[in-house]
Amino acid sequence: MGTFGNEIFEDDLALDIKYSFEEMLNSEVGINELIDNVMLEFEDSFEDFDEAMTAVLALATLVVENGFKSQKLKNELDKVVEESEYLECLKEENLELYESRVELIKKLKENL
């Protein structure tokens, strides 16, 4: 999986989640079931140190962009931010991407 820019959907994993979300959005499932289905489909990514942050941010962005709210996803975002060293590693490796992700986290926490 690769990141080719600072925006959340400039990442292969985020794009895969987006395509899956959009496909399921057109079905008759409710938003909570849709979230569960995406999280199950990408379970390994949601549990992986390097991928969990991207997976949660991508799904949360899609939920917010489509006018939904999800306490479960907000809790998942809080969990991954608290438990992951990802942001600290990212800060050392790519300050611009780090700042972009921190801004996105703030926006999502306000809107989930």
Rank of each mutant, 00 (worst) to 15 (best):
V80C: 11
D44F: 14
A60E: 04
V64D: 06
E47K: 15
L59H: 08
T54H: 11
L40V: 06
L77D: 12
A58I: 09
L62W: 10
A60K: 03
V38F: 02
E47D: 12
N75R: 13
V56C: 10
I35R: 03
E41D: 08
E85A: 01
K69E: 10
T61C: 06
Q71W: 05
M39G: 00
L90H: 07
F49D: 15
K79N: 15
V38C: 00
V81S: 03
Q71V: 10
V56D: 08
Q71D: 12
Y86W: 15
L77V: 09
V63H: 01
S84E: 04
D48C: 08
L87G: 05
S45L: 01
A52G: 07
D50N: 14
F49H: 11
D78I: 11
V80Q: 08
D50F: 13
E51L: 14
D78E: 15
N75V: 02
S70N: 07
K72Q: 08
E85F: 07
K72S: 03
L59V: 05
A58Q: 11
L87Q: 06
L87P: 09
V38T: 01
Q71N: 10
M39L: 04
D78S: 13
E85I: 05
F49A: 07
L59D: 05
F46H: 05
V80H: 09
K72D: 03
G67Y: 04
K69P: 00
M53R: 01
F42G: 03
E51H: 10
L73I: 07
V38D: 00
S84P: 11
E76F: 06
E47F: 12
L62I: 02
L73D: 02
M39C: 12
D78H: 15
D48Y: 10
N37G: 07
Q71I: 07
E82R: 15
L40A: 07
E88L: 14
L59Q: 01
L57H: 09
V63K: 05
D48V: 02
Y86P: 09
K69A: 00
A58M: 12
E76H: 06
Y86F: 15
G67N: 03
E88R: 13
V63N: 01
V64G: 01
Q71L: 06
M39N: 08
E82D: 15
N75K: 13
E82P: 00
L62F: 10
K72L: 04
E88D: 15
L90I: 13
